[in-house]
C-alpha cells in the first residue's frame, strides 16, 4: 500500500503454549498502543490473535510442541497479520466456519466451544489459509474505522 505511513513491523516468535500466547498478546497490545493505534482496533487485534494463536496451540500442536511466528504490519488503512506454525494442517485443508447460537437455545444445548472461528470471521477481513510445505500460514487484516 503506497498511501500508508511507514511503520515498523511487529514480529514475535513464541513457544506454542497457552501461557506464551497470553504473554505475546500483552506484548502485542503494548506495541500496537505505542504505535498510536485506535483502542477499538487494539481490542479487536487481541481477540482475533488470541483465537488464532490458541487454535494453533490446541489443534495444530495438539500432539507435539512447536513455535508460532506472528508478523504484524500496521498501515494507514488497515493492520495486516501473518501467523505461521509448523503443526498439523487445518482439517480438510480449509478454514473452519463459525456458528452463531440460535435464539432460544435451551441451556443444556448451549455450546461450550466453537466461538473462536465465529469471532475471527466477524472481526477480521481477507482471511486466507495456505499450507506451505510443512507450515501453516494464516493471513488476515483488520481495517481501520473510517478508512476509505
Amino acid at each position: 500500500m503506497n498511501d500508508t505511513l511507514p511503520q515498523s513491523t511487529i514480529s514475535l516468535r513464541i513457544p506454542g503454549d497457552a501461557h506464551s500466547v497470553r504473554q505475546a498478546l500483552d506484548r502485542i497490545d503494548t506495541a500496537l498502543r505505542a504505535a498510536a493505534q485506535d483502542p477499538a482496533i487494539c481490542d479487536k487485534a487481541q481477540i482475533v490473535l488470541g483465537e488464532v494463536m490458541n487454535n494453533v496451540v490446541e489443534h495444530a500442536y495438539a500432539s507435539r510442541n512447536g513455535t508460532i511466528e506472528v508478523d504484524i504490519a500496521p498501515g494507514g488503512t488497515s493492520i495486516s497479520f501473518l501467523v505461521t506454525d509448523e503443526g498439523d494442517p487445518m482439517p480438510e485443508g480449509a478454514l473452519p466456519s463459525g456458528r452463531a447460537v440460535e435464539d432460544g437455545t435451551a441451556l443444556d444445548a448451549l455450546p461450550e466451544g466453537g466461538f473462536g472461528w465465529l469471532l475471527i470471521h466477524q472481526l477480521a477481513q481477507g482471511i486466507e489459509y495456505r499450507r506451505v510445505g510443512s507450515r501453516n500460514e494464516l493471513r488476515f487484516r483488520l481495517d481501520l474505522a473510517g478508512a476509505p
Binding site: 498478546l25 477499538a40 481490542d43 487481541q46 481477540i47 488470541g50 483465537e51 490458541n54 441451556l107 443444556d108 448451549l110 455450546p111 461450550e112 466451544g113 466453537g114 466461538f115 473462536g116 465465529l118 469471532l119
Partner: peptide, 30 residues
C-alpha cells in the same frame, strides 16, 4: 480480555450451577 475458551467456561459454569442457581454477569469492559 475474554476469549472463546473463557466464554466457554462461563457457559459451562452456568450449566453446572443450574437449576439451583443462575449465573449472571456484571460490569463488562468494552
Amino acid at each position: 480480555f475474554l476469549d472463546s475458551s473463557g466464554l466457554g467456561a462461563l457457559v459451562a459454569v452456568m450449566k453446572l450451577l443450574a437449576p439451583d442457581a443462575r449465573l449472571e454477569v456484571a460490569a463488562l469492559s468494552p
